[in-house]
């Protein structure tokens, strides 16, 4: 039987991620304690909380670098546990707190993410991250902190992710590099790739967040 018009059209749009009573324990410590939340499928959502509140763990659950002890994490309605992890991680790109350049040149780094990509494709990925294509031949370990973090962003974007997870990506950067990375993330979100950004910096939340979730002692509430 067809559903009534109102039910079909007034359903809430599917969330990007939903956490359903998620508990995560590690080394006898409860990091997440029944976290329940919905991350909207657009714009920049900031997960805000103090150190040790569990916000980074929530982010790592999103691309299955962690799995919950109990509860369910969903990506656009699908249980993340049922998704093929490697394909899921390429859909859900992640930039970490500290830049993680791999040995070799910037080109080598981008080719880890996208083997066989041409220099034109790699150069375009760098330019999306506000780095010139000429950086392809630079040794990754020689980049400044801000450049290295933008290279890591380019390395993630070159996989063509549907979502971008950013785990306190500016915590090791100066104000100028921070501003540039925030601007890039806003640009990515404007292009239709939702961003989930973990931070403890309330001023940063004011600058970039379209939505916010407060993480406290392993639980989540609307910020």
């Amino acid at each position: 039987m067809a559903r009534p018009w109102s039910e079909q059209n007034h359903r809430m749009p599917a969330s990007l991620f939903s956490f359903e009573d998620v508990v995560l324990e590690a080394d006898r410590t409860r990091i997440l304690d029944g976290a329940t939340a919905e991350v909207p499928d657009a714009g920049i959502t900031c997960l805000v909380g103090a150190s040790g509140s569990g916000k980074s763990t929530l982010l790592r659950l999103c691309n299955r670098l962690e799995v919950p002890t109990s509860g369910v994490v969903r990506f656009r309605g699908a249980d993340v546990a049922d998704l093929e992890p490697l394909a899921h991680r390429r859909r859900v790109g992640m930039v970490f707190q500290r830049p993680t350049p791999f040995p070799g040149t910037v080109r080598d780094n981008l080719q880890v993410a996208c083997p066989g990509a041409s220099d034109e494709e790699l150069g375009a990925a760098l330019e999306r991250s506000a780095l010139p294509a000429s950086f392809l031949d630079r040794v990754a370990d020689d980049l400044s902190g801000g450049e290295a973090q933008r290279m890591c962003l380019a390395r993630t974007l070159v996989t063509g992710p549907q979502v971008l997870l950013m785990d306190e990506p500016t915590s090791a950067l100066d104000a100028s590099a921070t501003g540039m990375l925030e601007e890039l993330a806003c640009g990515v979100a404007r292009q239709g790739v939702p961003v989930v950004w973990v931070t403890h910096d309330l001023a940063q939340v004011e600058r970039i967040a379209d939505h916010r979730l407060l993480v406290e002692a392993g639980r989540v509430s609307d910020g």
């Binding site: 670098l65 490697l86 991680r89 390429r90 970490f96 993680t100 791999f102 880890v112 993410a113």
Partner: peptide
């Protein structure tokens, strides 16, 4: 950290 960054890129 590097190993996890590689895993996050979808490497087995």
């Amino acid at each position: 950290a590097e190993v996890e960054a590689r895993l996050a890129l979808g490497q087995p």
